[in-house]
Simulated scan of single mutants.
Amino acid sequence: DRIPYRIWSFGRVIDSYDNNFLFQILGIGQAFKANTVDFAINGHSLANYLTYTYQTQRYLAGGGMGSSFIAESWLDFGYLGVVGFSVVYGVILAKFFVWARKNVWICAISFYMVNAIIYAPRAGAADFVSDILSPTYLLLLIGIYFYTKPKTYV
C-alpha cells in the first residue's frame, strides 16, 4: 500500500530517456544522478525505491537489493501482467534460434534480449527492451551499420 503508483515495469526505458544527455540538452529530460535520494524517490526504478525506503544507508553507500520482473509487472498490471511478461519471455526464448539465423543485426539484438531475459528474475520486467531502446545502443547500431555499409564509388 505504501509503494506509489508509477510505471515500474518500463522504468529503465523511461529513466534512460529522462537521464539521456541529448534530452537534457534539449530541456526534455531530468538529470537524476545514480544512488541519490532524488532518483530513488522520483525515478522509475523499483529496486532503487525499495532499497532507499527500507535500507537507506545501504542505498546511499551504493548498494541495492535488486528488483524482480514479477514484482514490477504485478505492481503495474496485476496477475495479467505477470502472465503477459512471462509469455513474452517464452516467445522470445523459443524464437531465439530462428531469429539468430536471419541476419547479423537480428542476431545481435536477439543475443542482447536473451541475456537480459536470463537475469529477469532479479532484474526489471522490460530490461530486455530498455537496453535495445537506449539512445546509446541505437546510435552504436546506426554507426556500425553505416560504417559497414558497402561503399559505392563513382
Rank of each mutant, 00 (worst) to 15 (best):
residue 41 I to T: 11
residue 113 M to Y: 05
residue 88 V to R: 00
residue 142 I to L: 13
residue 108 A to C: 12
residue 21 F to T: 12
residue 141 L to P: 01
residue 122 R to W: 08
residue 68 S to R: 07
residue 138 L to N: 02
residue 12 R to Y: 05
residue 95 K to H: 02
residue 96 F to A: 15
residue 89 Y to N: 08
residue 107 C to L: 11
residue 115 N to M: 13
residue 103 N to M: 00
residue 93 L to K: 06
residue 153 Y to T: 12
residue 37 V to H: 09
residue 90 G to Q: 02
residue 127 D to Y: 14
residue 25 I to G: 01
residue 99 W to N: 14
residue 65 M to R: 03
residue 53 T to L: 05
residue 126 A to Y: 11
residue 26 L to I: 09
residue 101 R to F: 00
residue 66 G to C: 02
residue 145 Y to C: 01
residue 86 S to F: 07
residue 92 I to L: 15
residue 95 K to V: 03
residue 102 K to T: 07
residue 49 Y to P: 00
residue 102 K to N: 06
residue 26 L to A: 15
residue 118 I to D: 05
residue 7 I to C: 09
residue 111 F to C: 12
residue 84 G to T: 06
residue 72 E to A: 02
residue 52 Y to C: 05
residue 45 S to Y: 08
residue 11 G to P: 10
residue 11 G to T: 10
residue 40 A to S: 12
residue 77 F to I: 02
residue 47 A to Y: 00
residue 115 N to S: 13
residue 85 F to E: 01
residue 112 Y to H: 15
residue 68 S to E: 06
residue 45 S to H: 11
residue 55 Q to T: 04
residue 68 S to D: 04
residue 82 V to T: 07
residue 89 Y to P: 03
residue 77 F to V: 07
residue 5 Y to V: 06
residue 29 G to Y: 04
residue 86 S to T: 13
residue 84 G to Y: 04
residue 52 Y to R: 10
residue 141 L to C: 15
residue 61 A to I: 02
residue 87 V to Y: 05
residue 116 A to H: 14
residue 132 I to W: 13
residue 27 G to I: 01
residue 42 N to A: 11
residue 23 F to S: 13
residue 82 V to K: 08
residue 130 S to L: 07
residue 14 I to C: 01
residue 12 R to L: 08
residue 18 D to K: 12
residue 22 L to E: 10
residue 3 I to F: 09
residue 126 A to W: 05
residue 9 S to F: 00
residue 76 D to S: 09
residue 23 F to V: 06
residue 139 L to R: 05
residue 106 I to T: 14
residue 133 L to S: 11
residue 151 K to T: 09
residue 120 A to N: 08
residue 121 P to Q: 01
residue 125 A to W: 04
residue 52 Y to M: 10
residue 150 P to L: 11
residue 59 Y to K: 05
residue 16 S to D: 13
residue 25 I to R: 14
residue 143 G to D: 06
residue 138 L to V: 15
residue 20 N to D: 15
residue 40 A to H: 07
residue 6 R to A: 00
residue 21 F to W: 10
residue 95 K to S: 08
residue 109 I to V: 13
residue 21 F to G: 00
residue 82 V to E: 05
residue 149 K to V: 03
residue 109 I to F: 04
residue 5 Y to C: 00
residue 63 G to W: 01
residue 89 Y to T: 03
residue 61 A to R: 13
residue 59 Y to C: 07
residue 54 Y to R: 10
residue 115 N to R: 11
residue 59 Y to Q: 05
residue 74 W to L: 09
residue 36 T to G: 01
residue 112 Y to N: 10
residue 42 N to C: 11
residue 53 T to F: 02
residue 152 T to P: 00
residue 2 R to K: 11
residue 102 K to Y: 06
residue 144 I to K: 04
residue 14 I to E: 01
residue 141 L to W: 09
residue 133 L to C: 10
residue 19 N to C: 13
residue 142 I to F: 12
residue 30 Q to V: 08
residue 98 V to H: 08
residue 70 I to E: 03
residue 13 V to H: 04
residue 148 T to I: 08
residue 94 A to E: 06
residue 121 P to M: 00
residue 69 F to I: 08
